[in-house]
Amino acid sequence: MKRLSEERTKLVFEKLTKYLGDNLKVLIDRPDGTYCFRERKDRVYYVSEKILSLASTVGSDHLVSLGTCFGKFTKSGKFRLHITALNYLAPHAQYKIWVKPSAEQQFLYGHHIAKSGLGRITENTPQYQGIVVFSMNDLPLGFGVTSKSTADCKHADPMSTICFHQADIGEYIRSEDTLL
């Protein structure tokens, strides 16, 4: 269990700002206690201080996970968000996409979202902006990156990709063993 070094914290925050924008501060400065980022085996965990003190009693070999796993550092040193971070991304996301029920399954199987599956999109979404994907009844499904800005979406043809898939809740089943 390590503190994140300054460089690594920066990488994590840069990644998170792509989805959260200014709401990143909400994660750091919480009214309900102190939360911090911890690193273990290249995975980054977002833990409250209380749980952290409890976890310190567990030996490092026996500790599988604690708090919320936000993602991991790849071997090349980049930070990659995991679907487990969705719990914190979804409520604070700046930009969102709602997916039609017909396209939900496609997305949950790991495909990009085509224009035809697009239900709603936040106004003024720029291109290549990190977004959180919701179903039409506001259930967070995953997150991705827009391939077109909102204005471009209007003129795009129905089969063109609107949003690149990055993670979806189907991964809880598909890549169960690699998530932790």
Partner: peptide
């Protein structure tokens, strides 16, 4: 660092990132 110091550092870091980010946005 203590937890409070760490939080302070994280805050500063986040602010600096957001500042640089906001100009692009």
């Amino acid at each position: 660092l203590s937890v409070v110091q760490e939080k302070q550092r994280n805050k500063k870091l986040a602010e600096s990132i957001l500042r640089s980010k906001s100009t692009i946005l």
